[in-house]
């Protein structure tokens, strides 16, 4: 690829960094060329996020309908499954699965709620407050 062919398409780094591409200059030597983005790559990333957001929305509706506990929602929001969440919490997976049910969630003590909240980077009140989930919109970027 030549320097002037390096794609400068839409990217997703929010200007926080520039991706680097290696390309040929006019003399045929390799040089470093910053790139803002490459459309197929950006589309592939957006596709991955779409799938995640669809899943979050699905679970959000189930939580609002009282079929799953808020932990299920924040688990999806953090792109985790029960296995990964259990690893972060340092508890067995079957326990996490139980806590996904509203009936068990309502009986959890503050200590474990705090640990869940910390894992999700929120506080206990946010974890218990269903209106947080109600208002949380998960639109694709």
């Amino acid at each position: 690829m030549k320097k002037k062919e390096v794609p400068q398409d839409e990217g997703l780094s929010d200007g926080l960094f520039e991706d680097i591409c290696y390309a040929l200059d006019d003399d045929g030597h390799y040089v470093v060329v910053p790139t803002t983005g490459f459309q197929p790559k950006t589309d592939a990333l957006l596709q991955a996020w779409d799938v995640i957001h669809e899943k979050i929305e699905e679970v959000r509706q189930l939580v609002l309908a009282g079929k799953l506990s808020p932990i299920a929602y924040f688990m999806e929001k953090n792109i985790m499954d029960a296995r990964l969440l259990a690893d972060y919490m340092g508890i067995p997976k079957w326990k996490v699965k139980r806590h996904l049910k509203p009936k068990h969630f309502n009986k959890l003590d503050d200590d474990i709620l705090d640990r869940y909240a910390e894992t999700f980077n929120i506080n206990r009140e946010q974890l218990k407050d269903i209106s947080v989930i109600q208002e949380d919109k998960n639109e694709s970027k």
Partner: peptide, 14 residues
């Protein structure tokens, strides 16, 4: 999509 993400993930230099 997965193949392209791995092919072009950050840091491959293209």
């Amino acid at each position: 999509g997965q193949v392209v993400r791995m092919l072009e993930e950050i840091g491959t230099g293209g």
